[in-house]
Design a protein around this nucleic acid. Structure first.
Lengths: 227, 227
DNA sequence: TGTTGTGAATCTCTTCACAGCT
DNA sequence: AGCTGTGAAGAGATTCACAACA
């Protein structure tokens, strides 16, 4: 490596896969905690809520620019703010939803006013009876208009809730239109360029795992998306 | 058939969280592979399909009672059978679905004839207009009948696709009725006894992770339920 | 040759344990 | 007394690398 180039660069380090998932979880728990009137929290309290160890919570906090107070714990609004700085983009990001069947509608309903920085700005379907409408506050378009709408709405992320047969084609077009990340519900492995992120949310796998571990005696709680 | 019984049968070791998830994924990929006419597979081929390393695939195979052939690779039907022996219960398991909204229906549609060993045998909802019907081949009941139906149908697993406000109550009743594993879509941490398995499938976390890693440059593919 | 099976090395994540603070 | 912040130890998971083999 080059000897001098970066004296010391890396400051924020919230990096790893698992950590990011937990921060997302912590934020939701902390929002609820705050809503119930508690402005401070100890690592062991948050740990209990999240189902992890107190040491894990403190370790995760190390990546955030917050300091806890041994007598008072952590300041909840500060934690929420700091997690937001780590996880959220500076500007709100636009999301395209592919597929307006039951799953697509469930996803739309789910993300109603949940995270203002993540906005589902357009839904697409091949079925002509499902397009041209506003569903859960989101306009639905015919699939042909994907490229133009994605570009016009500055969409950078997508959720694929379409059948497997349509998923790869949709992915190709999304990527070509500029999408950088895809959350995929279809049970196939999408082929995308190296620099596009795809996370698969695999319901069969999820259910088979629960079944397996339920059968083999007791054990911990697991949170997903995940892996 | 291979009636050659191993003198000391393989202490199956398929154990860990991650491994179980991958085996589930491999099985689906292998079923497709077989359906497309290929009866054998090399570790690097399966690795490519699954988005993992070839060494990872071989390591995972070590837990299975299969031997690959250096010239021919692995026998696909044997792999599928062996993964089934690891993952599936001896007898089919019954599943209860809580909540017949869009998400519930999507789940029902998804599991139509997918894994015969995992059968959604009953759906429940508070909404009287949604019960007493057969949806996607599954009968729906009013929530009051939960305990009796769960017992009558010998149900041991559940999927909670209900709003957060109803989830904990449903979980309590499911556990009391004998359920040992729950796949939870509601964004709350369910409190259950130690010996009951709960996996949360958290859509917000899933989306926030994709958004985060899409923003930070490129990287690998991730499969969920998970963690 | 090209692949499997696997010990050993490596990398990553989690917990331990304790000094220092309030 | 009880908690935070963190180096160091411990567990796991993944990759390396190579002998044995068809």
């Amino acid at each position: 490596m080059t000897p001098l180039s970066h004296a010391f660069t890396k400051i924020s380090a919230a990096g790893s896969e698992k950590t990011v998932g937990r921060l997302s979880l912590y934020r939701r728990l902390l929002e609820r905690h705050l809503a119930s009137g508690k402005g401070r929290v100890f690592s062991h309290e948050l740990a209990l809520l999240a189902g992890v160890s107190a040491a894990q919570v403190r370790r995760d906090m190390m990546g955030l620019a917050v300091v806890g107070n041994p007598a008072l714990g952590y300041d909840v609004p500060a934690l929420i703010r700091e997690i937001g700085l780590q996880l959220d983009a500076a500007e709100p990001e636009g999301i395209a939803l592919i597929g307006v069947g039951h799953l697509g509608r469930a996803v739309l309903a789910y993300f109603q006013s949940r995270r203002p920085k993540l906005q589902i700005r357009a839904a697409f379907d091949i079925d002509p009876t499902k397009v041209g409408r506003v569903i859960q506050g989101c306009r639905s378009y015919p699939l042909q208009e994907l490229e133009s709408v994605v570009r016009d709405e500055a969409i950078t992320l997508a959720i694929i809730a379409a059948p497997a047969s349509a998923a790869q084609d949709a992915a190709n077009r999304l990527v070509r239109a500029g999408v950088r990340g895809i959350l995929n519900f279809a049970p196939i492995s999408l082929r995308v360029p190296e620099d596009v992120r795809v996370d698969d949310l695999d319901l069969t796998m999820a259910l088979e795992k629960v079944a397996f571990f339920a059968r083999k005696g007791a054990d911990g709680r697991v949170v997903s998306e995940g892996a």
